[in-house]
């Protein structure tokens, strides 16, 4: 039963990883730091999924990136683009709508 519960929770949260990335990357950050922040906040995602996802979001113009070579190792820093902020706002509105709908379902019955 706990396995099933964990799976449902993971499934529910999976769709929110994109929104979490767009919101978090309002300030520039690199992949692994983002991964640790997300995991600490309960967004279960692994490196092998997050890195390709960031790249896809960049290709869609939702993120912009720049290599930072000032540190010991070069790292790719991602930042949410204007388009990304727009999408983040839309997704947040969607999230609020889902929240309202759920409340209405609970109270309406």
């Amino acid at each position: 039963m706990d396995d099933a519960k964990a799976q449902h929770v993971q499934e529910l949260r999976r769709g929110t990883v994109v929104l979490a990335c767009l919101v978090r990357l309002a300030t520039p950050d690199y992949g692994y730091a983002l991964l640790e922040t997300l995991n600490a906040r309960g967004f279960a995602v692994d490196a092998g999924t997050l890195y390709p996802l960031l790249r896809r979001l960049e290709k869609q113009g939702l993120l912009s990136s720049a290599w930072n070579t000032e540190e010991a190792r070069p790292r790719k820093f991602y930042t949410t683009s204007a388009l990304g902020h727009q999408l983040a706002a839309q997704l947040t509105a969607e999230w609020d709508a889902i929240d309202r709908s759920l409340r209405a379902l609970k109270e309406g019955q």
């Binding site: 690199y30 992949g31 692994y32 890195y51 790249r55 190792r73 070069p74």
Partner: peptide
């Protein structure tokens, strides 16, 4: 390739 490099180095560091 640089992305893989970064990903692996950061994973090792963690």
């Amino acid at each position: 390739e640089p992305e893989f490099r970064e990903l692996i180095a950061d994973s090792i560091e963690a």
